[in-house]
Nucleic acid binder design. Sequence first.
DNA 1: GACAATACGGAACACGGTTCCGTTTGCCAA
DNA 2: TTGGCAAACGGAACCGTGTTCCGTATTGTC
Lengths: 193, 193
Amino acid sequence: MTHEAPRKRADARRNEQTLLDAAAAAFVAAGVDAPVRDIAARAGVGVGTIYRHFPTRADLIVAVYRHQVEACAAAGPDLLAGTASPHAALAAWIDLFVDFLVTKHGLAAALRSDDTTFDTLHAYFIDRLLPVCASLLSAAVTAGEARPDVEPFALMYAVGNLCIGAGRDPRYDARHMAQLLVAGLHPPPPPAA
Amino acid sequence: MTHEAPRKRADARRNEQTLLDAAAAAFVAAGVDAPVRDIAARAGVGVGTIYRHFPTRADLIVAVYRHQVEACAAAGPDLLAGTASPHAALAAWIDLFVDFLVTKHGLAAALRSDDTTFDTLHAYFIDRLLPVCASLLSAAVTAGEARPDVEPFALMYAVGNLCIGAGRDPRYDARHMAQLLVAGLHPPPPPAA
DNA sequence: GACAATACGGAACACGGTTCCGTTTGCCAA
DNA sequence: TTGGCAAACGGAACCGTGTTCCGTATTGTC
């Protein structure tokens, strides 16, 4: 079961970690679109080294944020178990997701880029987080707290979109808007016929 | 009141129209990010001519879509006057706005780009459409059909965001999500104390 | 028709992503 | 310890795009 590890060279492993740190710093300073050359310079390596370790920018971004994405995924079941109503749990989880995205400058935009480079980034987020979102949403639907005509994918996509450009204009509060969307999930009151 | 027109040369006026047509075609074919050289080639002019007429891409985009934006702005008051409830009028207007954005490949994304080139594009949309949205929203608030804690700017920004990437994945329906957001605008029912 | 102002074309430049290959480094076996 | 080879490195070179600049062509006027 131990993915037969071809045992990389020592300098390669060292550089990989150095790159991860450099990339994380560059992302904080200049967003996830930080120029490749900048990241290489921070790490004190050549650009070729970056491409060898992380063939696409998506690979690098995933590697940098993997821990946080996993944490977000893990929080879903906990919230569902520990919160009064499924709808409230979903709202709390969306809050977590939004907080993550808005603090990663440019990440939400990258998720929506039509550049095929980012397809694997998109795929990773969907793979890890969609099931979590789906279970929260379906619990809410089952409890009669959410309308059944919204697909989990569409909800995640919409929330991701709402995070784009957050923090650039103080008049726009992504978290508030995401909560508005979640509020809209409530089933419409039966027409008072 | 007639903005003293310096009376441009005949070839200049001709080229301006040619460029507008070429840009419109290029935008349809390749989105609003169509390469400058492509647009120039379509128009049969040099790239310098584009920059002379439209110093920034935003100027070109605004020129191409001005009519449609004006039409959208004009529709606001009409809807308010001709629709049963202010909230329904707002919902209908948002639908119009979303339809416009999703059919202009890449336009919604450009509106959110942090590239300063697009600042004037953003400003134009805000100038023309924000007042319309504001009057619809405030009518809904006055009628008790919308919570008062959402700023018109935030609403427009959110709806614009929801349109990003629409049409790229069939599982995502921007219009549906926008309507969900508008539904979330309804004031929460008073707590059944 | 000649002259000046206006507009044009496209080569040249800037910048960022990506590739490629000559050089260096680490590992292992002799 | 050392010889050799595969792995890894560095960064120059390349490509595509936006942008600028200036020599040339066109227009309008006198």
